[in-house]
Simulated scan of single mutants.
Amino acid sequence: MAAALGAARRFPAAGRPFPPGRGCGDAAGWARRERSYWRALRRRVLGPPAPPFAAPCQVGAPVLRGAAAAVGPERLGGPELRELAAALAAGLRRGPCLGLSAPQLGVPLRVFAAELPPARCRRYPPALRLAHRIEPFPLRLLVNPRLRVLDSRLVTGPEGCASLRGFSAYVQRHWAVHVSGVDERGEPVSWEATGWAARIIQHEMDHLDGILYIDRMDPRTFTNVGWMELLD
């Protein structure tokens, strides 16, 4: 047993021990990351990135756990909100993901965007599309959204999140909802959604309150979606 424990502490097979703070149980050690020379130079010249970020914040970022602030009427139609709207649309398509909230890009405001293009919709298995009413919808952006449940039946379905990259779990959501608000120009937006679209709306509304799907998931279903590849 002692020999086995000793061997388990060595990595890689050449027998070199873990560096200090980089053991299997040391999460803080694995969180540290060294920048390459060019990345360090770029950071020195350009400074740290500023919101809205080009990529979603990952779980652990404080902005994901606070309640987002309402957008004041004086900001509607302004350059800041237009920039945020463009960043959310670009982030959706770069991901690709189906919904994206302002807090995920480091902006603690009550804004989210969602889109399900037809090509992306066709990638879902037919049985799943039928069971969860997965249908395409155009890009929608909502500022200061308000949610109302239309059908309180709870349906369990798989969810992932751009802020928990590489994982998924099953989550219960209401079958149909209505969300209303305004767009970045201050024009009214009203959206009555069923099935998959309703799930996306509820997921993004949670983000605006600092809630992640892992807070609502069935913990037994939490999965690393690449677990098989990690064994190769």
Rank of each mutant, 00 (worst) to 15 (best):
E83C: 06
E204W: 04
A176M: 10
D151I: 08
M1P: 13
P188Q: 06
E34K: 12
Y124C: 00
P188I: 04
H178G: 13
P158W: 15
L64N: 06
L5S: 12
W38H: 10
F53S: 07
M217C: 10
G95D: 10
L5M: 11
R65Y: 04
R44F: 09
G160R: 04
E135W: 04
T156S: 13
A197S: 08
P56H: 06
G106I: 02
L147A: 02
N224L: 15
P117M: 03
A119V: 15
F18L: 13
W191P: 10
R35V: 08
V171A: 07
A114M: 12
W30E: 07
A40R: 12
A85G: 04
A61Q: 05
L64Q: 05
C97Q: 05
V71F: 00
R39F: 03
R173H: 07
R22W: 09
A69Q: 08
S180P: 07
G226T: 13
Q202P: 05
M217A: 05
N144Q: 02
A86I: 00
I211W: 12
A102D: 01
G195L: 07
P17E: 12
A119F: 12
A119E: 15
H174V: 13
L41F: 14
I201K: 03
E80W: 05
R94F: 08
D232T: 14
A50D: 11
L230F: 12
G25K: 02
G6K: 14
R120I: 10
T156D: 07
A3W: 11
V45C: 05
G47H: 07
R148A: 15
A85L: 02
A86H: 02
A68I: 00
V189C: 01
